Amino acid sequence: MSGTAEVRQDDGRDRDPDGRARNARPRDGLGRPMPYGTDGVERQPEGLVRSPEETVAEAQTLLDEGKPFHAHEVFEDAWKAGPDEERALWRGLAQLAVGLTHAARGNVTGGARLLRRGAGALEEWVSDSGRARPYDMPLAELSSWARELAGVVERDGAAVGAAAWAPRLRGGGA
């Protein structure tokens, strides 16, 4: 969240102290809302500005822990706060993480669609920027990983293990 306490308002909605809507329900490792009062997975703070290296490292840790929804939030911060010329890169990576989230939840259609959308975004970013390995991320391999997982999800029609399918964001690939 934003680092400020969320409060329930009389209208039954969660809002921050400034009155902005904020969902304060706890979430599980795949980002699914849980009942109030349940111990959930700690949420990623919103709006943090990290270096690209910190973004990749934090996202990798979350992916390895089977928390792709939370990794998506880290990528989303980079997408929103980063330089304009890198927004498409971070948005594509966020789409991969959300695609893995949906695939792990058993949402075959949504998972496959977002994985392919993210793969396409990374491929387009490489062709536009000429940078195939920004921050040591092997974008061609990540794109191939996403397309492979999309095919597996569609073929099997079942949820996949988020940690088991976590891609390698740096080095040798997915």
Rank of each mutant, 00 (worst) to 15 (best):
A159I: 04
G92Y: 00
A112W: 04
L139M: 11
W145L: 02
T4D: 08
E6S: 14
R131F: 04
H72D: 09
R50W: 12
H102C: 06
L62K: 09
A59S: 08
A97F: 10
L114K: 13
R87N: 12
E86K: 03
G99H: 08
W125M: 05
G99I: 00
G172D: 14
G157D: 02
R168A: 13
R155S: 14
S127F: 04
W145N: 04
P167Y: 05
V98P: 02
S2V: 09
W90H: 05
K80R: 15
V7W: 01
R147S: 11
F69A: 10
L30M: 05
A140P: 02
R20E: 06
R113N: 13
A103M: 01
G29Y: 01
F69N: 09
R13C: 01
E46A: 12
G106T: 02
G3Y: 12
R117C: 09
H70I: 05
V74D: 00
R13W: 00
R15M: 01
G40P: 00
W90D: 07
P26K: 10
G120I: 09
R8V: 12
R13V: 12
A97V: 01
L96S: 01
A164G: 13
G130V: 09
R113M: 11
D84Y: 10
V160F: 06
A24E: 02
D84S: 15
S144D: 15
